[in-house]
């Protein structure tokens, strides 16, 4: 099991007392599995992904990533864990505007102290179809191209798990389709686990399993036809 979430609770102080955003959430994700987290706005999807990636601290419960309890790790250890084992793909791409496509892809490797990954980064960018755009800045690229760079960046450190937050939310249908295919292909090739937060039922159906959240609780958990295909 790559990720195990046990009785996860997250509360925030608010004007009317404590606001419970996640309430006793539990689930597991196996190595190489793909999981879609769905639910209406305010159901706790984003909070869940933040906690699973070690970006936030739970109010209760545990998150085990490769059997390491994230709640027990220091800020430094969690940063290192994110760098080595986790990849991110965001809805708004979140490339660093002052870096070229190649430099953006290299950032996680450089943060890990590896400054000899340029060939690898070039190969990833070529793999995502941006061989001709390596030295372009984000502002010189389309949304689809920016998301490809983000995907290459997510995989450069060969993470164990990739979290994708609405990865096609800002793209048109045609581009979305391409990006989804690319994401799943890369995931397969790298043997990575993929957790996607999405509203898009069509995208969710491409994953092995769908976890539905409602009011901060797990509403349902179901397998998809994709699981049957992969099996």
């Amino acid at each position: 099991m790559i990720l195990a979430v046990e009785n996860l609770t997250r509360t925030y102080p608010s004007g009317a007392g404590l606001l419970t955003v996640l309430d006793q959430v539990s689930f597991q994700v196996a190595l190489g599995e793909t999981l879609a987290v769905m639910g209406p706005s305010g159901s706790g999807k984003t909070t869940l992904i933040s906690l699973c990636a070690g970006l936030d601290q739970p109010s209760g419960g545990r998150i085990l990533l490769e059997d390491q309890d994230l709640g027990q790790l220091s800020e430094r250890a969690r940063s290192e864990l994110r760098n080595r084992k986790i990849g991110f793909v965001f809805q708004s791409f979140h490339l660093i505007p002052t870096l070229t496509a190649l430099e953006n892809v290299l950032v996680p490797a450089e943060l890990a102290g590896r400054f000899d990954q340029e060939d690898q980064a070039r190969a990833f960018l070529t793999r995502v179809g941006l061989a001709e755009r390596m030295n372009h800045f984000p502002s010189q690229m389309s949304g689809g191209e920016q998301q490809r760079v983000a995907i290459a960046r997510a995989f450069i450190n060969q993470p164990k798990i990739v979290f994708a937050d609405e990865p096609t939310g800002n793209l048109d249908d045609r581009t979305s389709e391409t990006i989804e295919d690319l994401l799943f292909e890369m995931n397969r090739e790298m043997g990575t686990t993929l957790v996607i937060v999405t509203h898009d039922a069509h995208l969710a159906q491409k994953t092995h399993r769908i976890l539905s959240l409602r009011m901060g609780r797990v509403d349902s958990e179901s397998s998809t036809s994709a699981l049957e295909h992969s099996a």
């Binding site: 970006l55 940063s79 290192e80 994110r82 760098n83 080595r84 979140h94 490339l95 660093i96 943060l111």
Partner: peptide, 16 residues
């Protein structure tokens, strides 16, 4: 702010 948040996400410590 966004750049710093991205770097934190990618595994950069605040101190770095």
């Amino acid at each position: 702010i966004e750049t710093l948040a991205v770097l934190r996400c990618l595994g950069g410590r605040t101190g770095l």
